[in-house]
Design a protein around this nucleic acid. Structure first.
Lengths: 234, 234
DNA sequence: CGTGTGATTGACGCCTGTCAACGTCTGTGG
DNA sequence: CCACAGACGTTGACAGGCGTCAATCACACG
C-alpha cells in the first residue's frame, strides 16, 4: 500500500506549504527535512483513523485527502478535502488527543509525515512558527463556525449550491471548465449533510435549469450568479 | 449601559482564567492588569457585533455571554455560551479579521477587555502563553467539527437531548436540580438549529416520558441514561 | 459476460417548518 | 391596584422538504 519515495522537491515543498514553514530558519528546516518521512499513498489508503493515537501530522505534497468523522451508523461526515500545501492532523497533535477524524486518500498522494515530537519542538522553538499555527487554527475555527450556521439554517439546495461553488474555487477547473475534484454523489451528500438521492435530485434540477453541466461525476458550472444567489440568501 | 467597576479580585481572576494566564510572568501579569479594563454589563447589552473591527478580546469574570452568528433572515445561530474563565473574541484578534460573531450579555456580567495590541504582544513575548492559546483554539476546533457532524446527521430530538446534557454539565445544577442557565425556547432552538415550536414539542415529549421536569424556563434532568441514549446513537 | 458499485428514478410517509390562534406572565403607566 | 401592551409559551392544522426503500439502469472490471 505504502512505499517510500524520493521527493526531489521536498525542500522546496516544505518552504512552500501554506507559508507555514517559511517561518523556520535554515537549521530548523534542515532538521525538519531530516526528521520527516515522505510516502506515496494510493487512492483509498487510510492515512490515519479517528480515535487512534496522534503520532504526528501530515503535509500534503500532492494529491487530495479526505477528512471525515464517522457519525450515526457509520455515515461519513466530510470535514474537508486537503490538497497540496495543507497540513492535517496538527490539531490532535497539539491537543495531545487521539485523532478525531479519519483521513483517507481521495486522489493518489504524496504526504510528508512529521512526528509529534518534531512538530511540538518546532512550535516550542520558533515563535513565528507557533504564531502561524495559531493563525491557521483560528482561521479554520472561523470557517467551522460559519459552516455550522449554514448547515443549521440552510436547505439542501442552498448548501449544495454553496458547496459546488466552494469546490470550484478551491480546486479550480480544467480546460473544459469542469471542477478539478471528482466526487461520488454519496460523498457530496456527506459534505452537505443529506441523503445521496437528495443530492442527485438537486443536481438534476440545477442541470435542467441550465446552471450546471454534468459529465459523469464531473461538474461544470455554467451560471455562477444564480448559484450564488441560492447559496447566500434564499 | 456600561459602567466602570472595581474588581478587587481582578488579579486573582486573571491568574484563574482557564489557566491561560498562569503562563505569564509577574511583569507580564502586572502589565496585563494595567492595560486591560473591566466593565459591568447588563443583560441584553451588546459586547461586540459581527463584522465590526476586532479591537480586542474579552475575558468573562462573571455572568454569561451569548455568542451567535446572524444567519438567514436574521435568525440567530448560537455558537456558544461563555462563562467565568472563558475568553472570547481572540479568534478574530489573532486572525486580524472583523468579528464573525455577535456577543451579547445573557446574564449580567463583568468583563475584562484586553486590547488587541496587548494580547498580540503577550503572544509574541510568551511562548508558553501562545502555546496555550494554540491549544485552546485546537480544542475549540475539535468541538466545532463534532458539532458539525451532529447537526448534519442527528434529528432534532437527538440534538436537543444532547444540548440539554451539555448545558447541564457545562453550567451545573442548583440545589433543586435545575440547570443553572435559563434559556427561552427560541434560544434553545437557535442552538439546536430548528424551529421554536419543534423545541417546545420535543421538550414536552421528554417531559411526558418522565425524562425531564420543566418549571417555567428551568429544566431539571430526571433520567440521564435515556437522554444519553438519544443523544449518542439513536 | 457475470459481478459489483454507483447513479437514477419513483413511491411513500415522516419529520419539521410555517402559520395562526390563543393562553400566560410580567412590567409599565395611568 | 387595574388595565394593557408586549414578549414568550403552547397547541393544532397543514404542507412541503427530505429521508428511506426498492427497482432499474449504467458502467467498469476481472
Amino acid at each position: 500500500m505504502k512505499q517510500k519515495v524520493n521527493i526531489p522537491a521536498c525542500n522546496d515543498c516544505v518552504s512552500d506549504m501554506s507559508g507555514l514553514f517559511r517561518h523556520l530558519n535554515n537549521e530548523q528546516l534542515t532538521r525538519l527535512n531530516f526528521e520527516k518521512s515522505c510516502q506515496f499513498y494510493h487512492r483509498g489508503d487510510h492515512v490515519f483513523h479517528e480515535n487512534n493515537k496522534a503520532t504526528g501530522c501530515y503535509c500534503v505534497n500532492s494529491g487530495i485527502l479526505k477528512l471525515y468523522k464517522t457519525g450515526i451508523e457509520g455515515k461519513e461526515q466530510i470535514i474537508l478535502f486537503a490538497k497540496r500545501g495543507d497540513i492535517i492532523g496538527y490539531r490532535s497533535v497539539i491537543g495531545a488527543e487521539p485523532f478525531c477524524t479519519t483521513a483517507r486518500v481521495h486522489e493518489d498522494a504524496t504526504l510528508c509525515f512529521i512526528p509529534s515530537e518534531v512538530l511540538l519542538q518546532l512550535i516550542q522553538e520558533s515563535h513565528a512558527f507557533s504564531l502561524a499555527m495559531l493563525k491557521l487554527a483560528c482561521k479554520e475555527l472561523g470557517e467551522a463556525n460559519s459552516f455550522i450556521t449554514d448547515i443549521a439554517q440552510k436547505t439542501v439546495k442552498e448548501r449544495l449550491a454553496e458547496i459546488i461553488l466552494y469546490l470550484r474555487t478551491s480546486f479550480g477547473t480544467d480546460n473544459e471548465g469542469f471542477i478539478k475534484i471528482v466526487l461520488t454523489r454519496e460523498e457530496m451528500a456527506n459534505i452537505v449533510g443529506t441523503a445521496t438521492e437528495s443530492v442527485i435530485r438537486q443536481l438534476s434540477e440545477f442541470k435542467s435549469d441550465g446552471l450546471i453541466e454534468l459529465k459523469g461525476r464531473k461538474i461544470k458550472v455554467l451560471q455562477i450568479k444564480p448559484l450564488e444567489r441560492y447559496s447566500n440568501l434564499a
